[in-house]
Design a binder for these strands. Structure first.
Lengths: 233, 233
DNA sequence: TCAGCGATTTGAACACGTTCAAGAAGGGTT
DNA sequence: AACCCTTCTTGAACGTGTTCAAATCGCTGA
């Protein structure tokens, strides 16, 4: 019994013991499979429980809500994204290809879930939800993702303003969120459009980053960086 | 809600007769009041019906779902936005102030609903939903909104490339969506941050639009416009 | 006046997410 | 073994959005 504490949010067991961990994985795998097969809305918690061979309440012992299952998915793709991007980051040295590689890797990883990704993004947009990629609770996976873009930048040969170098990773991540938003709405065959978006936008960004050191653009760059700094605090 | 939901019939009566129209308005007003007072999630359809003095099913006769009530709100703010922006557009001639005026007007109109705006944006992000601002069903209000930004541009004295002039309104609208997204997540007192964002970003945009005709930037501009054109079809 | 007919209204019923009090299972301590 | 305490599991019950067959309303033409 959880007579005390048990704050509304805190999902039950952390899964430290082997017993619990196993059940947790079973439920999660079942849910993911059903999400892929039937989509998010048509997958009921009762169905997940039944297919996993447990009681409904048991699913809620491990996952605070149906949406928490989605967050788990979010965290999972995070890891996969990192792995999928590794080869390109090891091979390429130019900023453009590195950035394109990371972006394409992100879409690659998400691909199998395009059908129900809408539900994913739905929770993502909710500001009060801890599942939002902007929320404090999501800072861990978000920081991991931002680190990926930082690596794409710092591992490259590109030259740029020190202050811009510092702010850029987060901006790139934000752009990535934009790409994902486009991808979610992308109805084209195999989401080719999103690929075109990436291939078209990367050279632009690359070019602009290079140009940012030009005398004409220097003030604009500074102004933008100041704004970002203002908004951050 | 994502994949299916079998729209059986579109939302019921169009409200052509006086009898129906009256009930429809009553339900809508009641819902809006409760949304403001209690927020979206805590406003049940039963409560709306009860406060309006009708049966639950009656509300569903006029509005296909709870979310359709939100769309009604969306359409309403559209009109208000237009009105709120009118004075500035009549007064100012410079592009910067005109754009700032439109953006501030948008936030002004939305202000009273900040508390439950999250729910609004939640449906907005759902790609399969007809309520999404990107969906075909929402094209009417979207086009109205884009027209507002077009007016901010064409009514100004700014000089720019013809092709850019054509594409810019939609881009500005997209930027406005970004501002709204920021606003939704804005936890600062009275959403001051959003105001700072607008006041900071407008001069930047203004500056960049002016710069876009420079020889160094011409190729970048062209490249960007080509990309947009590619993605549109 | 009144039968007919579409528009409107009703509220019980359904499906789903979620909660919770009651237990069962383990594992350690004596 | 007996006991206790934490972890885990159960399923009935609750509140909510939504549906639908039936009832009612209000007008039109005979």
């Amino acid at each position: 019994m959880t007579e005390q504490s048990a704050p509304t949010t805190a999902a039950g067991g952390q899964g430290s013991t082997a017993r619990g961990e196993q059940t947790r994985q079973l439920i999660l795998d079942t849910a993911m499979r059903l999400f892929r097969e039937r989509g998010y809305a048509r997958t009921t918690m009762r169905a997940v429980a039944q297919e996993a061979g447990v009681a409904v309440g048991n699913a809620y012992y491990y996952f605070g809500s149906k949406e928490h299952l989605v967050q788990e998915f979010y965290a999972g793709t995070q890891r996969e994204h990192r792995e999928a991007a590794a080869p390109v980051l090891a091979r390429e040295r130019d900023f453009g290809p590195r950035l394109a590689g990371v972006l394409h890797a992100g879409v690659d990883v998400l691909s199998p879930y395009h059908a129900f990704a809408g539900a994913f993004f739905k929770t993502a947009a909710e500001p009060t939800s801890p599942l939002s990629p902007f929320s404090a609770e999501s800072s861990a996976p978000r920081d991991m993702s931002i680190a990926l873009f930082r690596e794409a930048l710092t591992g490259s040969t590109v030259k740029l303003d020190e202050e811009l170098r510092e702010a850029l990773p987060e901006l790139l991540w934000l752009g990535y969120m934009g790409v994902v938003l486009y991808w979610v709405h992308d109805r084209s065959e195999g989401q080719v459009k999103t690929r075109q978006l990436i291939d078209g936008v990367v050279p632009l960004v690359d070019r602009l980053v290079g140009l940012s050191r030009l005398r004409v653009l220097r003030p604009v760059t500074r102004q933008a960086l100041t704004l970002i700094h203002t908004l951050r605090h």
